[in-house]
Design a protein around this nucleic acid. Structure first.
Length: 327
DNA sequence: AAATCCCACAACCGCATCCAA
DNA sequence: ATTGGATGCGGTTGTGGGATT
């Protein structure tokens, strides 16, 4: 027998929505908002449960829905995000404006899984099917680097009419706190440290706001879309999705110093805290830090892709504990 | 033309989590 | 600390329409 659903208990309607029901729900929410979903059906004059109304609104009636078929770029992004997030459909949907988790889940189950298999890729692990069959060990380093390459390629090829055309190059860096920093170098270094800011630099100022100068670096929040300090001039031109090429940003060694629990930025470098000379602590509690980082990854899966690649690159370096500016 | 199959999409179900009482 | 309602999420099923036999 099992549990009775709320609709059964209350003898409410189930199944497909009629245009009249849609109109009632749409009118009600347009006029009054949804508020408490459980009270919506009564207020809107619907013989439905609140859960059903919520779902109908989210998946069909919401005015900001994109509808229509998924573009190739959207499909690529879903595949990339799925490789990081797995079946966390709502989080994947959060990266695709106008798309719902249900829509993406359906697309995945009906189409993308099949496409991946046809390409010889296992849709669960995102590894080559042959590799799984042979039980081969992964080369994390190689895969991570390949992943960034793939993203770079897909973003550079994609959406040629919009953001990518305006930007000749955008580079991004996410900092990794517990990563050891390679010391002593006279030239520029790829430092891997810190965890919150993403740094982007622009190598062309074509179509960029005046505040973003050629070859300058700028700090953004974890989404990569909102600058620290909220400057509307920035947000107005930024892409609505991940339309930039992730790669490492070089920071001149004289601009930063690092100790075991903090890093220090000098020489008028732009920082996310709006200070030119600032210092921040790195949390000592590893468990909390890992948890926080995982939450961060969930909010911005691109960070994980980047960090996977960075870890791969970092593993190729010699470990070092001190940073010297002398060499 | 009818039956069957396949597919995409919509909706339901059950569980987890949150939060206020 | 417990409880129960509200909400969110992911897995699964149902439905309708087009393609195929």
């Amino acid at each position: 027998m099992g549990r009775h659903s709320c609709c059964y208990k209350q003898k409410l309607r189930k199944g497909l929505w009629s245009p009249e029901e849609d109109e009632k729900l749409l009118n009600h929410i347009t006029n009054y908002g949804h508020g408490c979903w459980s009270s919506v059906p009564k207020q809107a004059g619907l013989q439905r449960c609140g859960k059903s109304c919520r779902l109908r609104w989210i998946n069909y009636l919401r005015p900001d829905l994109k509808r229509g078929t998924f573009s190739q770029e959207e499909e690529n992004l879903i595949i990339e995000l799925h490789s990081v997030l797995g079946n966390r459909w709502s989080q994947i949907a959060a990266q695709l404006p106008g798309r719902t988790d249900n829509e993406i889940k359906n697309l995945w189950n009906s189409c993308l899984k099949k496409k991946l298999r046809q390409k010889g890729i296992d849709p669960v692990t995102h590894k080559p099917l042959s590799e799984i069959e042979n039980g081969e060990e992964d080369d994390e380093k190689t895969r991570s680097q390949e992943k960034v390459t793939e993203i770079s390629e897909s973003t550079s090829k994609s959406d040629a009419g919009s953001y990518e055309q305006k930007q000749s190059s955008v580079v991004v860096k996410a900092y990794e706190p517990e990563m050891e920093v390679e010391g002593s170098c006279s030239n520029s270094n790829n430092y891997l440290m810190g965890n919150y800011p993403i740094q982007m630099s622009f190598t062309s100022n074509d179509n960029l706001p005046n505040s973003i100068s050629n070859s300058s670096t700028h700090w953004f929040d974890q989404t990569g879309l909102k600058p620290f300090g909220m400057n509307s001039e920035f947000t107005s031109f930024l892409p609505s999705s991940f339309c930039y090429k992730p790669s490492l940003v070089d920071i001149p060694s004289e601009d930063v110093s690092v100790s075991s629990d903090s890093f220090h930025m000098k020489n008028n470098m732009l920082s996310p805290w709006g200070l030119t000379d600032c210092e921040t602590s790195i949390k000592e509690n590893q468990t909390e830090e890992e948890e926080a980082k995982w939450n961060e990854y969930l909010q911005n899966p691109m960070l994980m892709l980047q960090n996977q690649a960075f870890e791969g690159l970092c593993n190729q370096r010699k470990p070092a504990t001190n940073l010297s500016h002398d060499d």
